[in-house]
């Protein structure tokens, strides 16, 4: 069941984009998101989509992965689409049906919102598909380090996240083991209504939690035994460094943002 569990949706590869510094990719994605939010027209969207497609090709990720990642938000997209379609106000009514009416503005707004949502998710997916969770954590830690001065626990959060990532497979394994053990004792997890099934989870959850606390205790001790005392005075085996490609990526993403702003100002749709 667990032999090749993958956390997140990281798609390993060795393209230029994969090798970029995680901080670059996070900031790049932020630029992307800002560009999408300030875009007022479809031309901007077309530009951004073309750019995202280019990134996708460079990182050798197939469209299949992106589409698969879009599935969970399909409902929200459809919902926003329908809301905008029927509830937008405008004079250019095409069909009127009681309080509901479809207008040209409505169709435009609905399409606009749907495309915006899809683009947003696609861009963030490009980040998570090309960056492993651990790299992401590292990148976030470094990005938030300046905020340590105002008491933001950057290192602690990053450590928590990486420990969580480390223990997800272990805890799933344990859940599996406990489920089997309880089934062997006659526990029934499958039949009955919702309430009965939730109740059946109790003999699974209690040992799991007890086990997790015990693990946490032992792990804390093991970390202490290996001289862990927080982020101060700590070094990294592979410190993050910006390289040429990172500066190029910054430049490109900044240009994209500028072009989108220019298009907006010029009102070219």
């Amino acid at each position: 069941m667990l032999n090749n569990i993958s956390i997140g949706q990281y798609f390993p590869g060795d393209s230029i984009i994969h090798k970029l510094d995680p901080r670059t990719k996070i900031l790049f994605t932020l630029m992307f998101i800002v560009s999408i939010f300030i875009s007022k027209g479809f031309l901007c969207f077309f530009l951004i989509a073309a750019f995202a497609y280019l990134c996708m090709r460079i990182s050798k990720i197939s469209l299949k992965f992106i589409v698969r990642g879009l599935k969970p938000i399909l409902f929200i997209v459809a919902f926003t689409f329908l809301l905008n379609l029927f509830l937008s106000s405008g004079d250019d009514v095409i069909v009127k049906w009681g309080v509901l009416s479809i207008t040209f503005t409505g169709i435009r707004n609905a399409l606009f919102m749907a495309v915006r949502l899809i683009l947003l998710v696609t861009c963030t997916q490009l980040l998570t598909l090309t960056t492993s969770p651990i790299q992401l954590t590292d990148g976030l830690e470094r990005l938030f380090t300046p905020f340590k001065k105002i008491g933001f626990p950057a290192h602690e959060l990053a450590m928590m996240m990486s420990i969580a990532l480390r223990f997800i497979p272990t805890l799933i394994e344990e859940t599996d083991k406990i489920t089997k053990a309880q089934k062997a004792r006659g526990a029934d997890f499958e039949s009955g209504g919702v309430i009965k099934r939730v109740k059946a989870m109790i003999p699974l959850l209690v040992p799991l939690f007890v086990g997790a606390f015990r693990r946490a205790d032992e792990l804390a001790m093991a970390m202490e035994a290996r001289c862990y005392r927080g982020g101060t005075g700590r070094t990294k085996m592979r410190p993050l460094t910006y390289r040429k490609a990172d500066y190029c990526a910054f430049g490109i993403s900044f240009m994209l943002l500028l072009v989108v702003i220019a298009l907006n100002i010029l009102n070219v749709f």
């Binding site: 693990r215 093991a222 035994a225």
Partner: peptide, 29 residues
Amino acid sequence: VFQNPDNQMVATIVEEDVAFGCENLGVAP
């Protein structure tokens, strides 16, 4: 070295875990 091998590994990658102690000591990269 403790009893339970699972509960003394911190990192998600083997080499990161091996480096953990050295990183805490502040050894140069």
